[in-house]
Design a binder for these strands. Structure first.
Lengths: 357, 357
DNA sequence: CAACTGCGAAAAATCGATTTACTCATTTCA
DNA sequence: TGAAATGAGTAAATCGATTTTTCGCAGTTG
């Protein structure tokens, strides 16, 4: 019956008003819960709303306010569990407050990051949750500052002089990893990372190195840092292992600590190529957990980032600012959990029987 | 200098108009590329736009049109590579056409699916890409029909009488898997799935069964289908293996075909529990590929869904409808690629030496 | 009885862009 | 020459909701 009508044009506040025999302003007041409306009028408005299936048009509703009830989220990628969970959380939290989340992927490009931000600025979003590709000092953060945008930086950041930041406590987690590896007897450890993400990588590296050296001053820590992309890292890692293997017995590290998920995958694939098995031939821990790490053989040890906490505190900080919260920016660090799974063992348990090299 | 201004209020079309000494209508025409504007006026408008850094407010711009330049995307989850890539693609395609993509996760709930859809309807989105939790016959699709929304259904769908559909060619891929497994000599195969996703699961199951039986009429195909959630599936799988093990030698299937990613994880974790190794103790193929499947030992065989093609054709179909395209709905099936990795071998190569049960 | 107080609701302005209708000129053609 | 067509541009309406202003009317007060 109402078919044509449904498909053609939705009821507006004026349709409700005329059906209820009042003005649009009164309808608006009823919906806003203003008490200075005569009960009988309010009831007729409610009835009209019910009958017409009226719902506020968020677009029109947002027109007049300077900050629209839209939150922008910019993530470096959507393909990993971490950012997938992050978006899910952020969306849920935005929704709870009656905001719409518009998520976009910068696809690991700072240029795109700024473009997206400009578009979000056009939309006059109330706030932005930005997980920068590189760190807090990129062009995106500059853009936000220059345009007086409200925002929170997460993940690959440490602290900022203009925006609140929320990230995993990389240093503490790395220290924990160091304690575990040193405790198991490792004295030659390779750290793998991507240099571009300056802030986080440094925190993770320093946290690891400091604690490791404190516990075992004789420990040898090698570092393989690729600048930008994953493929160069793969090549560098291959070269590194070729080199240490050339130096004969004992030159090979007994454990690898990867500072990010892609690095863990690269390390694993390099182990495969060399027929090295964890943990007998080499131990492996990676920053960032994933579901599959529990089902492989061996299960892969990992640092679990507290996604819910990061998302929760990011949104909390963001809404506080949106609602006019003042004060200097806060840099929050959320504690991680380190899951030592089977991929970590003690060195010197001899090569795996299947090791053919 | 322009700081305060930037932060307070952005330039509107009227600001541009007054600075250029013309009316807002003229500015609008210049931006739309209408030719009936005196070149010198056009130039002054362009200059004013430049000086003020004016950009169209998409919200205001969309106000008057019945269909706003917004595309909604509803995915069952964001945590897996498949849907992550899907959202990335969809966003990119929407952006190319000057549309904004608003993505939301139904978190595997049909109720939420409809709620999100209602909210998107409130936004008067031009179209929706819906990856239903269950299949094309859920309440979400009904809602879209009842409200005359434009949309395309993807992934867990076969065909629909109201909407275009795009999905992986599950049947063909499953047939290919059957050919591979039968060809390798498997005659007792377990298929693992989630019954709730009726359409796709049936297609995958039937495609597999038909081809397997055609090639080897004596093949035994067991099926473990959990209704809704992953945990029950885990329990059922455990029971199943307990049962077949109780029947003694040869009762155990030599291969498992999982119809979706979570099933592959469950199967792997069950293998772990029983100390079964792939492919010596049992072979495994799963629908849906993931990056980690190449780096584990063994690498896991998988059916790769053509994400780009699905996203591309979905958007193509969607925009065709948005632009008024008529005609009966089209059901598209995109071919998959089957990657037979090390987790699949021939049966009867004897148990793995490490098998302690 | 005039002035004041308040309540409830309507009218009007606003947000920013687009589109329709309309106004002058200036051409073009009969 | 006069009517119609074209060109260039503007005022105003529109989209749908919110917010400010105004107004009518009832009841009080001096």
């Amino acid at each position: 019956m109402a078919h044509r009508q449904d498909q053609q044009r939705r009821a507006s506040i004026h349709d409700v008003a005329s059906r209820a025999g009042v003005s649009a302003a009164t309808v608006s007041k009823v919906m806003a819960g203003v008490t200075t409306v005569k009960p009988e009028n309010a009831q007729r408005v409610l009835d009209a709303i019910e009958q017409l299936g009226y719902r506020v048009d968020p677009l029109a509703s947002d027109m007049r306010r300077a900050k629209r009830r839209i939150i922008g989220a910019i993530m470096p990628e959507f393909e990993s569990e971490f950012f997938g969970q992050m978006v899910t959380q952020l969306e849920s939290l935005a929704e709870q407050r009656g905001y719409t989340l518009v998520a976009a992927s910068s696809r690991e490009s700072e240029a795109r990051e700024t473009e997206i931000l400009a578009r979000m600025h056009d939309w006059r979003v109330a706030g932005v949750v930005l997980a920068p590709v590189r760190n807090e000092h990129g062009p995106a953060a500059d853009f936000m500052k220059a345009n007086g945008m409200t925002g929170v930086l997460i993940d690959r950041v440490l602290s900022d002089d203009a925006f609140d930041t929320v990230s995993a406590d990389s240093a503490a987690a790395s220290a924990e990893v160091a304690r575990e590896l040193i405790g198991k007897g490792h004295r030659h450890i390779l750290v793998v990372g991507l240099g571009e993400q300056a802030a986080t990588v440094r925190a993770r590296l320093d946290g690891f190195r400091t604690t490791a050296l404190k516990l075992a001053p004789d420990v040898r820590i090698d570092v393989v840092l690729a600048e930008t992309d994953v493929e160069p890292l793969r090549a560098q890692l291959r070269d590194y292992f070729d080199r240490v293997e050339g130096k004969g017995r004992g030159a090979r590290p007994t454990a690898v600590y990867s500072l990010f998920l892609k690095g863990t995958l690269v390390a694993l694939s390099e182990f495969r190529r060399r027929f090295w098995h964890c943990p007998n031939d080499i131990s492996l821990v990676g920053f960032d957990d994933a579901e599959w790490m529990q089902v492989t053989w061996p299960a892969i040890a990992a640092v679990v980032q507290p996604v819910r906490q990061i998302a929760g505190h990011a949104m909390e900080a963001l809404f506080a600012r949106i609602e006019g919260g003042e004060g200097p920016p806060v840099a929050r660090l959320e504690p991680c959990q380190v899951l030592m799974r089977e991929s970590v063992g003690s060195p010197g348990n001899g090569p795996h029987p299947g090791n053919r090299q």
